[in-house]
Design a protein around this nucleic acid. Structure first.
Lengths: 155, 155
DNA sequence: GGCACATGGTTTTATGATGCAACCACACAA
DNA sequence: TTGTGTGGTTGCATCATAAAACCATGTGCC
């Protein structure tokens, strides 16, 4: 079978993330959800995507524990899609993507919005990687280590 | 024309990033490149992907200014693919993806490696979003503002 | 209850993207 | 010059996506 490659069995955490949210639409759906969208129709009209694709993506993200279907909220009998903690945990990914575009996009004038600190109205600081003790790290300051095997009793 | 949706004309910087590196393979290629891989064959055998797809992705990333083709380096007449500053700038995105998986993956035991600070050998700290003045920000502490129009003279 | 319309999808069908294998071009060595 | 490895491209089968039509249920109104 040819079947599009799945990274689900891969041991690399980056690949595993991409397996869940690495398609063309999921992160945009999450972006809208973070800004308060909840209903099928809201996502569909805001993103302008085909309904069948939206349907498939929502289902997939529910399966991955990123969204949950909540029964109501505004009284109507319809359902809503709300982010789980796991879903809200993607926020740094979105910020990183946004900042990368802000810094390196070939046509920065095409970018319509900037993310600001609500209190001061000033742009948020660039994400930076730090060690446990607070030292600023570059990619070269890091390395990969095998995951420590958690010790457990016989079984 | 049906044509897979392109976000190139989109004003959202997240969509613009995804247009460049939002496909299934690009970020994994960049991941390997950050760890020193440079040759076509290295990427191909390490990632186990089809050569035509690799070829297309490399070309696309060269077009996007993420990779450059450098003439040599080890004496042979072959070419190499090396990351540009824009390409190296994706590092926070990769770290964010990795940390998301480390924190929320359903099967954390399947994750093989952890990213550590080379000096101390300790895991790097979680990326955190901060305001210009250093306050820690949650998603709710932020908002989107229209991009300020840079002032320019008549034309 | 019965009707019209909105919401929230699924189905159908066409096309683009992906995966695999085969093939090709060139460099390098003998 | 023949052989082998690297670095791709080409062809073809299959999968995923997109757009539009269709359908089921909810909701408002009488």
């Amino acid at each position: 079978m040819v079947k599009r490659t799945s990274f689900e069995g891969d041991a690399c955490p980056i690949a595993r993330s991409l397996d869940a949210i690495g398609d063309w639409w999921s992160l945009l759906i999450i972006r809208e959800a973070l800004f308060g969208l909840r209903r099928f129709g809201e996502f569909q009209s805001k993103l302008g995507m085909a309904k069948n694709i939206l349907s498939a993506r929502l289902r997939s993200m529910v399966d991955h524990g990123i969204l949950t279907m909540a029964p109501a909220s505004d009284g109507s009998a319809y359902q809503e899609y709300v982010l789980t903690p796991k879903g809200r945990g993607t926020f740094p990914i979105l910020v990183a993507l946004r900042q990368w575009s802000e810094e390196f996009d070939d046509r920065p004038e095409a970018i319509a919005t900037i993310l600001v600190d609500r209190e001061k109205g000033r742009p948020v600081k660039k994400l930076e990687m730090r060690a446990e003790d607070g030292r600023l790290l570059t990619p070269a300051d890091t390395m990969l280590k095998p995951r420590p095997v958690p010790r457990r009793r016989s079984a």
